[in-house]
Design a protein around this nucleic acid. Structure first.
Length: 214
DNA sequence: AGTGCGATTGACT
DNA sequence: GTCAATCGCACTA
């Protein structure tokens, strides 16, 4: 009796169970804690024919009373998803060309969140290459606009609950996160001195200038 | 109704 | 390294 030949479906089940969906209770309440917590966790987008997934390797926190946060001047039609309970997606369109994915933080009514700035691709790499119009693995999801493009994230996913049973979700870490680095946030002009950017050190999929990634 | 600008990217000197 | 593209939205009037 051979044990080596498992049915394909059983192998698939076993492989998939390495990553479990994160629930609301898994997410720290505080935006800074959440930004650090998400490093190393998995971002998954299940499309009809393919699963896109990757390790989150760079994040930024946006807080209450933070002039750089979109919520600074209160709720508007654009930023309302940022005020949802933690774990919801806030997808924002910027520079006339790029979408960016945030994970809302805090309780409902609090406009804080975490920007996903870079992801190390794991599954669906061929599709990501096609959509991103590049074969360079390192460039697929290095930068917030690229993350959204590689993972096919656009306005329709704004407000999605990433801790529910939807197609876009957060998963546990496939591999534990390495040492976490900190720096100021990239590309902002207000409250620019605050150290609210977090990344996995020595990971080549992290964006940003070298001086910030020491 | 008009204006300014942004949590960026890709192309180019 | 520099720089233009591009457009939805918030703000002013």
């Amino acid at each position: 009796m051979s044990q080596t030949k498992l049915p394909a479906i059983a192998q698939g089940t076993k492989r998939r169970s390495r990553i479990r969906r994160l629930g609301l209770r898994d997410l720290p309440l505080d935006a800074v804690d959440l930004a650090k917590y998400l490093i190393g966790k998995t971002l998954v987008h299940d499309l009809p024919k393919v699963r896109l997934s990757g390790r989150i390797v760079e994040t930024e926190a946006y807080l209450e009373g933070d002039a750089a946060a979109h919520s600074f001047r209160g709720m508007t039609p654009r930023n309302r998803s940022l005020f949802l309970e933690r774990g919801h997606a806030y997808v924002y369109f910027c520079y006339g060309a790029h979408y960016m994915l945030n994970v809302a933080a805090g309780a409902a009514g609090i406009g804080t969140g975490v920007l996903i700035r870079a992801v190390e691709p794991i599954e669906g790499i061929e599709q990501m290459k096609r959509w991103r119009h590049t074969d360079r693995l390192l460039d697929l999801a290095r930068g917030p606009g690229r993350v959204a493009a590689a993972f096919k994230i656009g306005k329709p996913l704004d407000g999605e609950n990433l801790c529910g049973d939807g197609n876009l979700w957060l998963g546990s870490a496939a591999k534990p996160a390495g040492p976490i680095g900190e720096s100021v946030r990239i590309g902002i002009t207000k409250d620019a001195h605050r150290v609210l950017r977090f990344y996995e050190r020595e990971n080549p999929f992290v964006s940003g200038p070298k001086r910030l990634n020491a």
